[in-house]
Simulated assay, not measured.
Amino acid sequence: MANVESVSLQRKEPEIARCSRLFFAEHDLIDRKDGSLVASIYSTHQHTDINVHYRDSVGVQTFAVLWDKHGLDNRLFHVVEEAIALDVLAPVQLIHHSEGLLTLLLDPSFRQGTDQFVEFWQCIASNVICDCWDLRLMCETQIRHFTEGRQFRTYAKSILAVETLGIVDLNLDHFLFKEEWHQTMLDMYKDEPRGADPKDDQSAFDFFDDDLPF
């Protein structure tokens, strides 16, 4: 999470905490002025990099869903599930739907080397539950004051500024119960014999073994 305080957005506990079996709700973003739901931040495991090549180890991807003016549309949960199943979510930082247009805000380092990525997303958009949506792919630098979609123009850049979206390596900070074990790990570290070669013994904080597949 970015250590940036937004003047327009405020974090709160997610309105729907259990939205999928494939990804996890981190928190919601609401408008500071009227308290309306603006966006939700989610995370999932990710085994490909931004350019949809397999990673050496599993990572954690954080992405945003920017809701339209009518609020939450749970069909977007299914859209994300389809993207995860087809391995095309990795380059996506933000997803937004409004009036039949599905917009994907992509990581600027994504290189669209093949048409398969676009084809898969077009298939997802055109086969959304009880509807058929058009697809728009963009990067942050392409957002202008005349870009279609008022909600998208108003909030997309603010969300990118306040949230750290993308893929990072899995580490101890992702363990949801880390704080419960923090003091125990400190005590273990303090009890280690003084003068021990740090190269011979792993620190109590070295929770993940480099030899493990993740």
Rank of each mutant, 00 (worst) to 15 (best):
E5Y: 01
L72V: 11
S98P: 01
N127I: 00
R150S: 13
P14T: 03
F24C: 03
N51F: 05
T154F: 02
C19Q: 09
R75S: 11
Q93W: 03
L135G: 07
V52M: 12
E15M: 09
R75H: 13
M1V: 13
H70W: 09
S203H: 14
D206I: 01
R111V: 12
Q93M: 04
C19K: 05
S8G: 00
W67V: 05
E13M: 05
D134F: 04
L86W: 03
G149V: 07
L37A: 09
Q10A: 06
Y189D: 14
E180I: 13
T184Q: 14
E15C: 11
L22R: 14
F23P: 10
G59E: 00
I143F: 06
A85I: 13
H174K: 02
N3Y: 07
D131A: 15
E148K: 15
F214R: 11
F152E: 13
P108Y: 00
V38N: 00
L105R: 10
T48F: 04
I167N: 00
H45S: 01
E179M: 09
V92P: 03
L176A: 13
R18Q: 10
F214G: 05
L101C: 07
D209K: 09
E5R: 09
I16H: 10
Y54F: 12
V4K: 12
Q142I: 03
P193N: 01
P198R: 08
R21H: 08
V80M: 09
H53Y: 04
S40L: 02
E163R: 07
F110M: 05
L9Q: 12
V162W: 02
I41K: 06
L135Y: 08
F117Y: 15
F208K: 05
D107Q: 05
E179S: 11
F24K: 07
V128A: 14
V88D: 00
L9P: 09
I16A: 08
L66G: 07
V162G: 01
Q202P: 10
G113W: 06
I159Y: 06
L105T: 04
Q10D: 04
L135P: 06
A156N: 02
A161D: 07
Q61F: 06
E13L: 12
I30S: 00
D200I: 09
S126A: 15
D200R: 06
N171F: 06
I50E: 00
L101F: 00
D209P: 01
R150D: 12
E99K: 13
I84G: 04
I84S: 09
